[in-house]
């Protein structure tokens, strides 16, 4: 049952990431940056809300996990060359900050 929830959340999250990336990724991958930051915010929020296990499987592991990506982020960083260092640093730090913000909002 949990596997099914994870799969559904993952399918929706991955599709949303693909659409956002298609519309916003250019020379600089703004779309991928956006989904990674938003997904990190939401996972922080869902963690703080202490969701039930099925809900966390659907929304956390499934949706947020499917929405965000480390593989495309790493390949884009490599492809960007010198600008990659800035892209990587901003993505990691802003995502971490967004996650902390989400957690804080969830606790309030």
């Amino acid at each position: 049952m949990t596997v099914l929830l994870v799969a559904v959340g993952g399918a929706v999250g991955a599709t949303l990431r693909f659409l956002v990336g298609h519309h916003l990724d250019r020379a600089l991958p703004f779309g991928t940056f956006l989904v990674n930051v938003v997904g990190s915010f939401l996972l922080g929020l869902f963690t703080a809300l202490s969701l039930t296990e099925p809900l966390l499987a659907l929304l956390g592991t499934g949706f947020c996990g499917g929405l965000t990506t480390y593989s495309a982020f790493a390949v884009q960083t490599h492809t960007l060359g010198r600008r990659g260092a800035l892209y990587a640093a901003v993505t990691v730090l802003v995502s971490l900050g967004a996650c902390g913000l989400g957690f804080w909002v969830g606790q309030a």
Partner: peptide
Amino acid sequence: PGVLGGYTTLSATSEQGR
């Protein structure tokens, strides 16, 4: 974007770091 995008995660990494 499908299998490998879904397989990897930046949100879990951020949450673990947090």
